[in-house]
Design a protein around this nucleic acid. Structure first.
Length: 277
DNA sequence: GCGACAG
DNA sequence: ATCTTGTCGC
């Protein structure tokens, strides 16, 4: 159900490092780092739309959105991997959890041999094939993808969320638990839940210094405690702007650090891994 | 040469 | 990512 739009940009693990980096620059040029949704056609989203395309993230998690409109709420898919490193060769288990209006409508996974080791900046060439294999198992067609890892917050602005997003030409968001590169525009310690801090390009990023790459997003925080929760690093993958990416992640987060589709994909991957071995 | 580096 | 016990807090 998830069609490849750009088979010429597949993450070929047999390429040289230079060729991989070159492909990533090509992907970054094909990527759209601003809102370009063809979804969200609910009364709430159409009201007072003017000429600007609008999209209210609330339709993603509101089960009632279906009845408030003649159309179903958009389908959001969370994607995450678990690994079978004792195997020879090592294999990856990629899990996808599809949700609509806050409810799970499908869960699939695929197990795929790994071709190369983990190399910072080249993650898509290790995990791309497993992810695409899992997406092929899907019978529904997601309107939006959330990936574990970076999107535009990447040395060449082509993290795994951007790479896969461009391949299937679908709105995609990168959700990372640690920062690969870029500079936070402020203090990230003990941020209140619901807040965000810009992540800007620096000399290590193939983009003008200061360009907004994404946000550190605080989806969860302890009330009155001596410890604090670290933020997530959210960035546009494809067809989503940085503001909307952060809005969507906050909307899909409910009581846990990770947005629900990714959190469920994470636990499903572990579950399926145990079930397999 | 040294540091930095998603999962 | 994965390997794991204890520990803090509601």
């Amino acid at each position: 159900m998830t069609e490849l739009s750009r088979p010429d940009l597949l993450p070929d693990a047999s390429l040289s490092t230079e060729e991989m980096e070159s492909l990533q620059r090509e992907i970054a040029q094909s990527a759209v780092f601003e809102d370009e949704f063809d979804i969200g056609s609910t009364p709430a989203n159409q009201a007072d739309a003017g000429n600007e395309p609008v999209f209210d993230p609330a339709v993603l998690s509101n089960p009632l959105a279906a009845t408030a409109s003649d159309a179903d709420p958009p389908i959001v898919a969370g994607v995450d991997q678990a690994f079978l490193l004792e195997d020879e060769p090592e294999r990856a288990l990629s899990a996808v959890v599809a949700m609509r209006g806050g409810e799970v409508i499908e869960r699939v996974y695929a197990i795929t041999p790994l071709e190369i080791p983990y190399i910072p900046g080249l993650l898509a060439f290790r995990e791309g094939a497993p992810i695409l294999d899992a997406l092929e198992e899907l019978t529904v067609d997601p309107d939006l993808f959330l990936f574990d890892g970076s999107g535009r917050i990447h040395f060449r602005q082509a993290g795994i969320a951007t790479h896969i997003g461009v391949l299937v030409d679908a709105p995609a968001i990168g959700v990372a638990k640690s920062l690969l590169c870029g500079d936070p525009a402020g203090d990230l310690e003990d941020l209140p839940a619901g807040t965000r801090v810009p992540i800007e390009a620096n000399s290590r990023v193939d983009a003008p210094d200061g360009i907004l790459l994404g946000y550190a997003v605080q989806t969860k925080q302890y009330e009155s405690s001596s410890r604090y929760v670290n933020p997530l690093y959210v960035s546009p993958g494809h067809r989503v702007g940085p503001e909307m990416a952060a809005d969507v992640v906050l909307e899909l987060s409910s009581g846990y650090k990770l947005p629900e589709p990714v959190r469920l994909a994470d636990s499903y991957a572990d579950e399926a891994k145990t079930l397999d071995s």
